[in-house]
Amino acid sequence: MATVSMTINGKQVTGDVEGRTLLVDFLREDQRLTGTHVGCDTSQCGACTVHVDGKAVKSCTMLALQADGAAVTTIEGLADGDVLHPMQEAFREHHGLQCGFCTPGMIMSATALAARNAAPTEADVRHHLEGNLCRCTGYHNIVKAVMAGARAMQA
């Protein structure tokens, strides 16, 4: 066991983890932040996407210890109280989710895209979301939502 400290959604947290503990397990099991999901075991579905120091990262590909000292944002940290983040609002408005399982990862990935590309095209969005699998929506409305959400983030 080793001690790990990080900021999660603006809050300083410390925990004891095994060397092999993945960041996603630390978030879900230790911190009880279950909005970050696990959809695969080969780092391909993106359901576990969070921000680590502002970058979108698949939290199943990273050890908790590697996030020591980092600032982590999860889906739970995006809204301002009950006021949704523009990207969350765009997913709701454009029906960019059905079962909701891929959604936290999609939104975290999308906000990272929007942060560096204020007006992504459909092709930009489809390319960027290659690492996030959705089995429900056929991506059609997700793409719409991300384009609208990125624009709304500039407002």
Binding site: L33, I75, E76, L97, G100
Partner: peptide, 14 residues
Amino acid sequence: DFRFVTGRGTYTDD
């Protein structure tokens, strides 16, 4: 959608 876009859904593994 509010609970799903905010990560507050409750799936079995949660």
